[in-house]
Write a protein that binds this DNA or RNA. Structure first.
Length: 841
RNA sequence: GCCCAAGUGGCGGAAUUGGCAGACGCGCUAGGUUCAGGACCUAGUGGGCUUCGGCCCGUGGAGGUUCGAGUCCUCUCUUGGGCACCA
């Protein structure tokens, strides 16, 4: 009899499906456990990354089931998005057809992998039953002022013909197609993620089940800095010039001011011409500002833009010192951070220093080190080769603040600015509100109507969903495709009944994935986005498994939605996920597999060659889950061998074990079987800990392999048929082994479980437990060191913890004695259970 | 430039609290078996030396702490990742 994966796999998949084994029912059984994996985009076929992601999730889900938890383990499809639309343009099909076909293929593949999903809960975000709730949530956000419309400079991808969120621009390039992103001024819808920004940031500290790496990336992305806003006077204007700084303590060192080219004051002078001191005519001046504005934009990867600027001929007045400072316009100041204007302190800021050097502007140090000798640059700024951005003590040039530490000065200056009415403490963030409008077809229509009389009118809840029209021409050009569908655009105003027009943009698909884990809980609910009692029962998600690529995009939106929905009274939790596992990539030739590189391994091919179980085991065994690993076909062969040997072991023993109970007299076991018993219990302990606590599936599989090796060795020493009254131990060990194997290789485990004479599913069995008593030994092997080097080992009773006795025992060891010979022991270190260390001389 | 990971045999990796480095798997070597199927079994497999008892070296590199360091500390190199005119 031979292990034949394909027949075993289809046999058990059919039975599981027929008996609906993996259905999740609220309130049933033990404590709930929500195991969630990032849902796939239906791009065509599963790739190895999916197989790895979902194999990890499946082990966790199956393990928890056997531990007695009531497990929620759903799957769905993130089925709105640009690839469907691009494919439609290319192949002249409809995105809906392309998407439906892909979902069917991928769902079959997922089922063929034997993943224990409750398929009754499947969702697909392109279905109106799903996306109507995106629209419903949009309207709730609108009511709470969490959704709003504004004109803004936006990231525009010329190739995708759509706006991108800041999170979707990587080094100035479109995250999806790699085109250089341009800027456009457009009216767009935004979600006010900044309303939750402090909670999103501070909440990271409490997320100890999340990788530090992800938390750091989110912190960086949010980019909170504490500082102050200070208003400088402008000498020929009543209005002030407000700047943001994190270093108000260096304000006496400001030697000039810089505006972003888009700054309102810069715009005004652009129109009116420069001040007299600029030494330029109006045309020259305006031309230069135009150039600066173009240069200002995002640089190519790695390029550090050359700093350039122009003097406006206008001056600002430092409210602390009364000093007059020239105002410049330069390309290195960004309009969308702070106030779009800075005070430049070249002595203590790298960027200001570089600019000051280039334009021959003065450099004035105002902070010195708090300890040690005064550096030469304090009195000779001309000799500075770089800015010194230190925190220290304020030098004499700082008026009343001289002698204070930077920290004290910051506090005092903020107080004084507040008192003087020209400034206050301020916090600024790198993150901006989330722009959600997309000029594409294949997404959720934004439920808004523009009425010439009533203005912006939300679509009433009763009219939801606003469905995507099927008849549409997709050319990839000319803006929102919905704009050309007259039957869609023309609508009666819900308020006045007059002729009005629908919003033609669709929502960013990250909206879909921001709350999908809730829809799984009641996917067929027609009254609500999800059932509140189900949410209260199942949340939070106990483990969420997916790629690190979503560390700032999806995972930040996901957290934002949770908090916003909690405040809408929809949820009782404020953080969606307790534990996050970010799995690494499957590489080939050192890079991610991709169709364009032609280095793709097709999971189907691996499955047909080695079987589902071997494929699953390999992706788990190759490396710990967080780490990337290199695909190696040799590795999967090894896993197939392991399963072959499992099969052979049980197939050969089953006849001899028929009718044998899994328990019996422990006193009569031969030594080889006592060892095997200990190994089986120890393996139970290890696998449990690896899967439950450490999430290291590679070492769990290794432990199972070790146990199999020991089984083979034991059977060679004491054949099962000859074991007599000890045969029960074999049954106990084999059943343990099969049960422990089942989350990793569920099909083979079911088959072996059946071969051992069982009728029920091994998937429904309780996870084996271990007996700490069985793990105990009578004797233990201790290493003996002489002068720090291991010279032998001794076998002693576990109870022996007497120093002198252990040393005496160590000295009996021939090789130890040889190394001690002729020397004097000056010290002994004995750690019972660990080591005996002897030090001579 | 700043911040964070990681670096262990020919390869993937293990070592959970500072206590016998290299578990487990691949590959390789020898033998067996079957005989041409990427099959199976047994033994071996970090490097060097060996009188076959052992000995020396060894976790990117250099120092240090310790009876004892892959593990802790300092410096440094390399790779990967994140951030990068964020005032």
């Amino acid at each position: 009899m031979k292990y034949d994966p394909s027949s075993i796999e289809s046999k058990w998949q059919e039975r599981w499906a027929a008996d609906d084994v993996y259905r999740a029912t609220q309130g049933e059984g033990g404590d709930k456990y929500y195991c969630l994996e990032m849902l796939p985009y239906p791009s065509g076929k599963l790739h190895m990354g999916h197989v790895r992601n979902y194999s990890i999730g499946d082990v966790v889900a199956r393990f928890r089931r056997m531990r007695g938890f009531n497990v929620m383990h759903p799957m769905g499809f993130d089925s709105f998005g640009m690839p469907a639309e691009n494919a439609a343009i290319e192949h002249h099909t409809h995105p809906a057809i392309w998407t439906r076909q892909n979902i069917e293929v991928m769902r079959n593949q997922l089922q063929d992998m034997g993943f224990a999903y409750d398929w009754n809960r499947q969702i697909a975000s392109h279905m109106p039953e799903y996306y109507r709730w995106n629209q419903w949530l949009f309207l709730r956000f609108l009511e709470r002022d969490l959704a709003y419309r504004k004109e803004a400079l936006l990231n525009w991808c010329p190739s995708c013909e759509t706006v991108l969120a800041n999170e979707q621009v990587e080094e100035g390039l479109c995250w999806r197609c790699g085109s250089v992103v341009e800027e456009r001024r457009m009216s767009q819808w935004f979600f006010r993620i900044t309303a939750y920004i402090d909670e999103l940031l501070d909440g990271l500290d409490g997320l100890d089940g999340w990788p530090e790496r992800v938390r750091t990336m989110q912190r960086n992305w949010i980019g909170r800095s504490h500082g102050a806003r200070v208003t400088f006077g402008v000498d020929d204007s009543d209005e002030g010039l407000e700047i943001f700084t994190t270093r108000i303590d260096t304000i006496f060192g400001a030697t000039f001011m810089v505006l972003a080219p888009e700054h309102p004051l810069a715009r005004r002078w652009y129109e009116q011409g420069p001040g007299a001191d600029a030494g330029l005519d109006a045309e020259e001046f305006a031309d230069t500002i135009d150039k600066l504005e173009k240069m200002n934009r995002r640089q190519r990867p790695g390029e550090e833009g050359e700093k350039a600027g122009i003097f406006t001929g206008h001056y600002a007045v430092n409210p602390f010192s009364g000093e007059r400072l020239p105002i410049w316009i330069a390309n290195f100041v960004l309009m969308d951070y702070g106030t779009g204007a800075i005070m430049a302190v070249p002595a203590h800021d790298e960027r200001d220093f570089e600019f000051a050097r280039g334009c021959a502007l003065p450099i004035r140090p105002v902070i010195g080190p708090s300890e040690g000798d005064a550096p030469a640059w304090i009195n000779d700024p001309g000799a500075m080769e770089e800015a010194v951005p230190l925190y220290g003590v304020l030098l004499p040039a700082n008026g009343d603040y001289a002698g204070m530490t930077s920290e004290d000065a910051q506090q005092r200056m903020i107080e004084d600015a507040r008192a003087g009415g020209f400034g206050d403490a301020a916090v600024d963030y790198k993150i901006k509100d989330w722009g959600v409008s997309r000029q594409r077809y294949w997404g959720t229509p934004i439920p808004i109507i523009y009425c010439p009389d009533c203005g912006v009118v939300p679509v009433p809840d009763a009219d939801l969903p606003v469905t995507l029209p099927e008849e549409v021409e997709l050319t990839g050009e000319g803006g929102s495709p919905l704009g050309h569908v007259e039957s869609f655009v023309n609508v009666d105003c819900p308020t006045c009944g007059g002729a009005a027009r629908r919003e033609t943009d669709t929502m960013d698909t990250f909206v879909d994935s921001s709350w999908y884990y809730l829809r799984y809980l009641s996917p067929h609910d027609e009254e609500h986005p999800f059932d509140r009692s189900a949410a209260d029962y199942w949340l939070s998600v106990d483990i969420y498994i997916g790629g690190i690529t979503h560390a700032v995009l999806h995972l930040l939106y996901f957290r934002f939605f949770c908090k916003a929905m909690a405040d809408l009274g929809l949820l009782s939790v404020r953080e969606p996920v307790t534990r996050l596992l970010t799995q690494g990539m499957v590489l080939m030739g050192g890079t991610a597999m991709s169709k364009s590189k032609g280095n793709v391994v097709d999971p189907d091919e691996m499955v047909s060659r080695y079987g589902v179980d071997a494929t699953r085991i390999f992706v788990l065994f190759a490396a710990p889950p967080e780490r990337d690993f290199e695909w190696d076909e040799g590795g999967i062969i090894g896993c197939r061998r392991f399963l072959n040997r499992m099969f052979t072991l049980i197939a050969r023993s089953r006849a001899a074990l028929e009718g044998v109970a899994p328990s019996g007299d422990e006193g009569e076991l031969p030594e080889a079987l006592v060892e095997l018993r200990r190994k089986a219990h120890d393996t139970t302990r290890r696998v449990t800990d690896e899967v439950e606590q450490r999430l290291h599936f590679n070492t769990a599989v290794a432990a199972l392999m070790e146990l199999l090796n020991e089984c083979d060795a034991a059977v060679a020493a004491v054949p099962v048929a000859d074991a007599g009254t000890s045969a029960w131990l074999y049954r106990d060990v084999f059943e343990r082994l099969v049960a422990l194997l089942s989350p990793f290789a569920p099909h083979l485990a079911e088959e072996l479980w059946e071969m051992l004479g069982h009728r029920e599913y091994v998937a429904d069995q309780l996870w084996p437990t271990y007996d700490a008593g069985v793990l105990e030994r009578e004797t233990i092997s201790l290493a003996v060191q002489v002068d720090g080097k291991v010279r032998g080992s001794i076998e002693v009773s576990v109870d022996l913890d007497d120093n002198d006795a252990l040393v005496a025992e160590a000295l009996k060891e021939a090789n130890v004695a040889k190394h001690i010979d002729g020397r004097t022991i000056v010290r002994t270190v004995v750690v019972p259970g660990k080591i005996v260390s002897l030090i001579t001389q």
